[in-house]
Amino acid sequence: MRAVVITAPGGPEILELTERPEPVPGPGEAVVDVAASGVNFIDIYQRSGAYPLPLPSPLGVEGAGTVAAVGPGVTGLATGDRVGWVDVPGSYAELALLPADRLVPVPDGIGLDQAAAALLQGMTAHYLTRSTYEVKPGDKVLVHAAAGGMGLLLTQLAKHLGATVYATASTSAKADLARAAGAAEVFGYDDFADALRGRIDVVYDGVGATTFDGGLTVLRPRGLMALYGAASGAVPPLDPQVLNRSGSLFLTRPSLGHHVADRDEMLWRAREVFDWIMDGTLDITVSHRYPLAQARRAHEDLAARRTTGKLLLIP
C-alpha cells in the first residue's frame, strides 16, 4: 500500500509517496481503509521538525474511512464500520493502522469526506468554545484568520452560541466568507487592534506572531487569549507582567490532544460536532481535494494561505 512517511524533518519537498507493507492489526488495533485525510497546520509543524516526531514516521493525524480488519481483543468494532480519528499519526496513506479505542463512529448522515474535514478542526472549535472559554450569549469574540477552515468553524459556532463575532481576514474575498459564516465585522490585520481596543471577551488566535500583541490590546480587563496555533510563526517569550498591566488578562496555549485524551470526552466532542453538521449549525467547507501524490502541493498551499476552508488528501 502507498503512504507518505517522513524519514527526516524538512520542507514540503520531502513529501513523497512510498510503498509500504500492508499493516496487520495487533491486539487493540484496527486497520482502516482511508477514504480521506485532513491536511492541517500540525502536519506542517511535524514535517518541519517544529513538533519533533520519532523518525521514520507516518504523517497525517486526521482521517476517516472504513474498518478493514480488527486485531485480537477489539470489541464494539467490526469490519465495514465507518470511523474517523484525530490526534493519531498515519492518515496520509491508503491503509492506516490505528488504536481501536481512538476511533469514533461516523453517523450515517455524515459523509466520510465530511468527517475527515470536520473532526480535528470541529473538535478544536468545540473545546475552545465549550471548555477553554465557554462562549455565552452577549459575549464579544475575536476570531483570527476567520476564512480558514478553523476560523470558519469557530465563527459559526461562536455565533450559534450567542456571541457577537469579530474577525480578521487578509482579502476582501476572505472577509466575505467570514461575514457569511456569521461575523458581524471583519478587519484587516493592520487595523483590528485600534478598532476593537478593550472590547473583546475572548480572542481565538491560530495565527500567532503577527497577531498576538494586537490580540492582547483588544481584550477587556480579565479577558482571555486562547493561542491555539502559530500559522505566522511562534510568539516570542512573554513577561507575565504584560498580562497584569493590560488588565489582569488570562493567556492559555491549549491543544486538542489534552481535550480528547479521555475516550468519553472525545466521543462527546465528536458527537456534538456531527450533530451540529447534521442540523445545519456547522457548514463544513472543503475547498481543495488532492491525490496522495500531491501532498507536497497541499502543504505549500496551506502554508502560503492560498486556500480557504478545509484541504483533504484522497487516496
Rank of each mutant, 00 (worst) to 15 (best):
Y51N: 12
Q121G: 05
V5Q: 07
R269G: 15
E134D: 11
S170N: 12
G215S: 12
D213P: 08
V106C: 06
L59M: 15
R269N: 15
R179S: 03
L153T: 10
L157R: 09
P137W: 05
G257I: 15
H258I: 14
I110T: 12
W85Q: 05
Y228K: 00
Q121K: 15
I42Y: 00
P221W: 03
A78Y: 11
R289S: 12
D101M: 01
L77A: 04
G223F: 00
P315E: 01
L77G: 06
I284P: 00
T129Y: 02
R82G: 02
P56N: 05
L157C: 07
G208M: 09
V104F: 01
M123W: 05
A303S: 15
N244C: 10
W268N: 13
L238S: 15
L77N: 06
Y290M: 10
V83L: 10
A234T: 10
V203P: 02
H259D: 12
F192R: 02
R82N: 01
A68T: 08
A50H: 07
H299C: 08
H126D: 13
L128F: 04
Q46N: 14
A146H: 00
D81R: 05
D190N: 14
P291F: 14
R253K: 07
G280S: 12
D101S: 02
A35H: 06
L142E: 03
T18V: 15
